[in-house]
Design a protein around this nucleic acid. Structure first.
Lengths: 162, 162
DNA sequence: ACCAACAAGTTTCATTTGTAACTAAATCGA
DNA sequence: TCGATTTAGTTACAAATGAAACTTGTTGGT
């Protein structure tokens, strides 16, 4: 067993007691991974959609017409990601691109009737997943959690430029 | 402006009111992305470590000796990821591999003195980041959030096998 | 003892992801 | 009205990721 340098297990307690299991960025990453994986597998298997594709459908279903640039702002995804996801959805006939008269660099995107039908099918399933994940948490706890997630995001973005 | 087809925004409200902004898997993913990005950039710039590498150092700093398999279980990372991160750390002289007498397929990993020194340097900085992210939240709120993250992870894993 | 099943780690390969470079169009200033 | 800068979106390329195959070693049944 060893421990060639000290008397006790060779690792001393962390300077100010860092425990990975209780470290928020770690917990957040692991939890998000688990949830994303679950959702990704579900949508892949049932609807053959990736998460970026699903997000675009969700936003187009909510907001109606949009441009890719607006979708980037709305979903916080990279413009390359949005470009690729849009192309795939257009290809599958779920999204329609029409020229944007007021700016010929961009296009207007909207769900086709098929896309809208898919949206109406997916949305309840998405909400059901969320409900299953959130069982055991009171509305108040859920509110605290959502608030924390939003705040973490802002704080992280904020700290990025220091 | 515009809206070339109807009187109102062309998208109706979602079936049971799905709002992406309030959808937990989405919020979780976005928050985790922002936080991971922040941490990743910080450790890359200051210590030239990836997140997997940093996690291994954290666990080895906490626990002392370990095998890769144990590190996989502990960090919830893939064995390929752990293998590559270990190789890089050994290469840099931060981690030492010694043969495992009781099982010659595996090796024992531990921080070298340099690795331990780096750990002692990084840990306070990691805690400082966490503290900055968590300003504005009471200890109680933090506890709720941590509990929720753990529970979400378990629920997601649970739902994966249904 | 032996062979089948299994486990630790590594390597290979295909997919995903994001950064940077690029094209085309709009805007802004002189 | 022209050229410089900025923006929408795509393409090209490089790095990260993970599944599957592989290697080496262990274990358990007969």
């Amino acid at each position: 067993m060893a421990d060639s340098e000290g008397g006790r297990p060779s690792a001393a307690a962390a300077p100010s007691d860092l425990k990975l299991d209780d470290y928020l960025p770690y917990r957040l990453s692991v939890a998000a991974n688990a949830v994303s994986g679950l959702i990704a597998r579900a949508y892949q298997a049932r609807f053959d959609l990736t998460i970026p594709q699903w997000r675009l459908i969700a936003v187009l279903g909510e907001d109606g017409l949009s441009t890719q640039q607006a979708l980037c702002a709305r979903t916080l995804m990279d413009k390359v990601t949005v470009s690729r996801a849009s192309a795939a959805l257009v290809e599958r006939g779920l999204v329609l691109r029409t020229p944007n008269a007021s700016d010929r660099r961009s296009h207007r995107l909207a769900l086709t009737p098929e896309g809208a039908a898919l949206y109406r099918q997916i949305a309840p399933s998405a909400l059901a997943y969320e409900a299953k994940l959130l069982t055991q948490f009171s509305p108040l706890e859920q509110q605290v959690a959502m608030k924390l997630l939003r705040r973490l995001q802002l704080a992280a973005i904020d700290l990025s430029g220091d």
